[in-house]
Simulated assay, not measured.
Amino acid sequence: MSSNNTTTLSRDEVYDILSNGRRRFVIYLLRQEGGQIALNELSDRVAAWENDIPVDELSDQQVKRVYVSLYQTHIPKLEESGIVEYDKDSGVIKLTSNVASLDAYLPDEDRREIPWQTIYLGLAIVGLAVYGIATAAQGTIPQGVLNVVGLLIFVTFGAVVAAQYLYERT
């Protein structure tokens, strides 16, 4: 398939492609290597990743097992879906522009997650402290002020919940 062709993948096809760790790692490595890598090198890197050892410590059997799996199963599946092109003469695998169709289903490495539980904990501690201080000073502070403090704490929690909802929705 040519990299100029764009194939729209269904959600089920995307899930099927990404359901295998080797295929996800192949896509990751191809992106790290600028979009192309030789099958031999890819086999070495995948085997090293799966066995959690450096490439130079791999046995021939470990590499061969991965090579055969990539050659017979995973690369053809990625090629059929239009995600990669495989040149059998040179042994080079290249990403196509269709890889972008997977982006919505893969975690964005550049996007930092907001630690919502930490925000809620901090807000609860601050709210409890403010309310505790206001309650301790109850004789000197009118009841209406205590009600306003409680309402402000409640509204602040509501605002944080709304912010989290909007953040996770986008």
Rank of each mutant, 00 (worst) to 15 (best):
M1V: 09
S3L: 05
S3N: 07
N4C: 03
N5I: 02
S10W: 12
R11H: 09
D12R: 13
E13N: 12
V14S: 03
V14A: 09
D16M: 05
L18C: 09
R23N: 12
V26L: 08
I27P: 03
L29M: 13
L30Y: 07
L30S: 00
R31I: 07
Q32H: 10
E33S: 07
E33Q: 09
G35K: 05
A38V: 00
N40G: 13
L42V: 08
L42F: 00
S43H: 06
V46T: 10
V46S: 11
A47Y: 02
A47I: 11
A48R: 01
W49A: 15
W49Y: 15
N51T: 09
D52S: 14
D52Q: 14
V55D: 06
V55K: 11
D56N: 15
D56S: 10
E57V: 06
L58W: 15
S59Q: 13
Q61R: 12
Q62W: 06
R65H: 12
V66A: 03
Y67F: 08
Y67N: 05
S69L: 08
L70N: 07
Q72F: 09
T73H: 06
I75V: 15
K77G: 02
K77D: 11
L78D: 00
E79D: 05
E79H: 01
E79S: 12
S81R: 11
G82F: 03
I83H: 08
D87L: 00
K88N: 08
K88V: 12
K88D: 11
D89Y: 00
S90R: 09
S90A: 01
V92S: 09
I93H: 06
K94W: 03
T96Q: 02
N98K: 04
D103I: 08
L106C: 09
P107E: 02
D108L: 00
D108N: 14
D108P: 04
E109N: 03
R112Y: 08
I114G: 02
T118R: 14
I119W: 13
L121V: 09
L121C: 04
A124C: 04
A124N: 13
V126M: 13
V126T: 15
V130S: 04
G132C: 08
I133L: 15
I133D: 01
G139F: 06
Q143S: 10
Q143W: 06
G144T: 00
V145H: 00
V145E: 00
L146Y: 02
N147K: 14
V148W: 14
G150K: 13
L151C: 08
L152S: 15
V155Y: 04
V155P: 06
V155R: 02
T156Q: 04
F157E: 03
F157P: 05
G158V: 14
G158Q: 14
A159T: 05
V160I: 14
V161K: 15
V161F: 09
A162R: 14
A162G: 11
A163C: 03
A163G: 03
A163S: 06
Y165E: 09
Y165Q: 10
Y165I: 07
E168F: 07
E168H: 12
R169D: 05
R169Q: 14
R169Y: 10
T170W: 11
